[in-house]
Design a protein around this nucleic acid. Structure first.
Length: 516
DNA sequence: GGACGGTGAAACTTCAGGTTGCCTC
DNA sequence: GAAGTTTCACCGTCC
């Protein structure tokens, strides 16, 4: 352990450490416990650095171009990057994350303030890691983070190629904290690892896939298989495990994903066994890697829809009320009325049944409706800044939620095919396209064109160009006015009307691109 | 006397992240 | 539980 003094240019420990890192011509990662803190910390440091670099200015500009209209978050990140700092968390648009990571690898950005996003997955070693917060908000207020996480974060320090040694620094806020940090993190042992197989959704999914792939085809084989897993090794009580497995098998059969049949003959030394076979539906659910509970829930909803009219909001709420979509957006007290109103409006169209106020799932149901509300606004062409203000959801989180929704809708589509719910498939296809682009239905024809997103499609639509046919008919001059030259020419090309670029030997009456 | 701006205490709000799947020629 | 943000009372200054 080294002992040295760091110059105190400010009265903020993290800022001093960051400035010291830069002075040493090194880089650091600062780990904090919230997205908001990551942004604030990066900004505070950025006010104190004396970095000016043309390359950083370029990256800063790129960061602003990622969305159709930069949000306040984009602008804040851009300002930080200009000064050689950045923040990094799951709320960043994927492209921005990439820009930040690359800039750090290129040693242009010196300090990244981040949430644990950077502790796992991404390989971004630094000379120094600064762990500002070792406590995080959990079920019982603030808790110390697991030792394993501490190791993950501090382990980001160390670049064998560049440095002879590296540093991981934690900041204690009180003398008491200092002692605790020493005891549990620096001198302590990491926690034991526990098998995730015991978690019901994982077990259900895994059990079904074992049967669906013919890896096992009887109850006995299943028990045998699980007895060899880490789960059984840790759990020790195999009898208890069998009870859990039976419970799951019963559910899978009840949901019609598997069929069981008793064997006719039972030899003297063998115990009774049950044959297990997947149904067609069960096979597909397993292939989709979808939690069987979610699959059976979708089927219930689809049955309820029958041949009735399907509306957007109920469809969105259906996919939001799943384990896959968690964590859901939380409904704040003052928002209850708004959510309630939406639920009342669509009362007769809801595919999912509203639990009574006294049931345990009541709150989750409301949250699923609020999450659906956000998606509904997205397909109503609201932009990222609006969604941030209204729902406190950032671009990166929007993308993640929409991706899950798309996957779940795809699964719904596949299940609908097998269950002969043909009517609803076209609605789902439409909704998937709208979620992808964040657009109203009327823009869908135009969105099939390349290089046309919701912004350009809306511009065209506003100019009475509403279909691909309209694009063909439309005058090139007008298209150029709306979209600019490059895009307009590209569009014409896509509809099979290539405008040749004639540079010389221009005949009378024939126009050059330059003429426009 | 009133508009304005700066300051700081108090009240209020919010709180990490992630894997799976299929394909659009 | 605590950081970060918002709100609001309070005070001084200037016109």
């Amino acid at each position: 352990m080294k002992n040295y003094q760091i110059s105190e240019e400010t009265d903020l420990d993290v800022v001093n450490l960051a400035l010291d890192t830069i002075k040493k011509e090194k880089q650091a990662l600062v780990f904090v416990n919230t997205k908001r803190s990551a942004e604030k910390e990066a900004e505070t440091i950025s006010f104190k650095t004396e970095i000016n670099d043309k390359r950083l200015e370029k990256i800063s500009e790129d960061v602003l171009k990622v969305l159709s209209r930069p949000t306040k978050q984009c602008e804040r990140l851009a300002r930080c990057i200009k000064k050689g700092t950045a923040f990094h968390h799951a709320g960043l648009a994927p492209k921005q994350r990439e820009l930040v990571e690359d800039a750090f690898r290129d040693r242009l950005v010196k300090i990244i303030c981040c949430t644990p996003t950077l502790a796992v997955g991404v390989d971004l070693p630094a000379f120094r890691t600064i762990l500002r917060d070792l406590k995080r908000f959990g079920t019982h207020g603030l808790n110390w983070i697991p030792v394993l996480e501490y190791l993950q974060q501090s382990g980001r320090a160390g670049r064998p190629k560049f440095d002879k040694y590296s540093e991981s620094i934690t900041i204690a806020k009180t003398k008491g904290d200092k002692d605790i940090i020493h005891k549990i993190y620096i001198n302590g042992e990491p926690e034991d690892i526990y098998s995730k197989l015991a978690v019901e959704p994982v077990l259900r999914t895994y059990l079904l896939s074992l049967i669906a792939t013919d890896f096992v085809n009887s109850r006995k084989q299943i028990v045998e298989f699980f007895s060899k897993t880490f789960w059984a090794y840790q759990y020790k009580d195999m009898h208890q495990l069998e009870i859990i497995i039976d419970k799951m098998l019963n559910l899978l059969e009840e949901w019609e994903f598997i069929k069981s049949s008793r064997e006719e003959f039972v030899s003297a030394d063998e115990v009774e066994d049950t044959n297990l076979k997947p149904t067609l539906l069960g096979k597909r659910v397993a292939e989709l890697y979808l939690d069987p509970l979610t699959a059976s829930y979708f089927i219930k909803c689809l049955r309820r829809a029958g041949n009735d009219v399907v509306k957007d909001f109920p469809l969105l709420q259906m996919v939001c009320h799943t384990l896959e979509m968690r964590p859901l957006l939380r409904t704040r007290v003052k928002e209850y009325a708004k959510v309630e109103e939406m639920l009342t409006t669509y009362d007769t169209y809801m595919l999912d049944k509203e639990p009574s106020m006294y049931e345990t799932g009541y709150e989750a149901f409301f949250d699923s409706a609020k999450t659906a509300l956000f998606m509904n606004d997205w397909v109503d062409e609201r932009d990222e800044e609006y969604l941030m203000e209204e729902y406190n959801i950032r671009p990166g989180e929007i993308k993640a939620k929409l991706d899950i929704a798309d996957w779940l809708f795809y699964c719904t589509e596949e299940i609908s095919k097998l269950q002969q719910f043909h009517e609803i498939i076209k609605h789902i296809k439409k909704m998937r396209a709208r979620l992808k682009y964040g657009a109203r239905e009327e823009l869908l024809p135009l969105l099939r064109l390349k290089n046309i997103g919701r912004i350009r499609a809306r511009k065209l639509f506003g100019n009475k160009i509403k279909t691909i046919g309209d694009v063909s008919k439309s005058d090139l001059t007008k298209l150029i006015q709306i979209l600019g030259k490059a895009t307009a020419l590209n569009l014409k090309k896509q509809v099979g009307q290539e405008v040749k670029e004639v540079k010389k030997n221009k005949r009378k009456g024939q126009k050059n691109i330059e003429d426009y």
